[in-house]
Design a protein around this nucleic acid. Structure first.
Length: 160
DNA sequence: ATCGGAAAGG
DNA sequence: CCTTTCCGAT
């Protein structure tokens, strides 16, 4: 019997809980463990968590209004009762080199998704904008990719 | 608060 | 591979 935590993860209601692109279809028939950035996206998608985490500022930028709560929820999701923002943020920091996220300096608890790379590279056709009505998420690529791409400075040659 | 190395576990 | 945990440095 599967022991662990009862996952309140809504596979697929009718419309869509969340587009497939966040679930990494790459080499994984069954299901891979939820990744932190998927979880963050999941929270950002729901209005009930706007007091905890929400889009704010630039495109792809979000602020964690209640770090302890986000950590608590993440801990529940991963069955890690001792999760806290310190540890969660370390995981977030590992995303810097992966180009998934980066920090918005000067703004406390504020990070920014690099959708331009992450999303568009893996899934050219996305419609998250529909799910995040009013949120600065996905956009339609311009003539040449539309990605202004102010983010792509340096990086180690690490490619999974 | 934020960063990132190191070790450990799944 | 992706965190989780611990922790010294900035």
């Amino acid at each position: 019997m599967r022991r662990g935590c009862p996952l309140p993860s809504p596979p697929h209601s009718q419309g869509f809980a969340f587009p497939d692109w966040a679930y990494k279809p790459e080499s994984s028939p069954g299901s891979r463990q939820i990744q932190l950035w998927h979880f963050i996206l999941e929270l950002l998608q729901k209005e009930e968590y706007q007091g905890v985490i929400a889009w704010q500022g630039d495109y792809g930028e979000f602020v964690i209004k209640d770090p302890d709560e986000v950590a608590r929820l993440w801990g529940i999701r991963k069955c890690k009762p001792h999760m806290n923002y310190d540890k969660l943020s370390r995981a977030l920091r590992y995303y810097y080199n992966k180009r998934i996220l980066h920090k918005t300096k000067g703004k406390r608890f504020t990070y920014k998704f690099n959708f331009s790379k992450v999303v568009l590279v893996n899934y050219p056709l996305l419609d998250v904008a529909a799910a995040t009505t009013g949120s600065p998420l996905l956009l339609t690529p311009g003539p040449f990719g539309g990605t202004p791409g102010p983010d792509a400075p340096p990086l180690s040659p690490e490619v999974s």
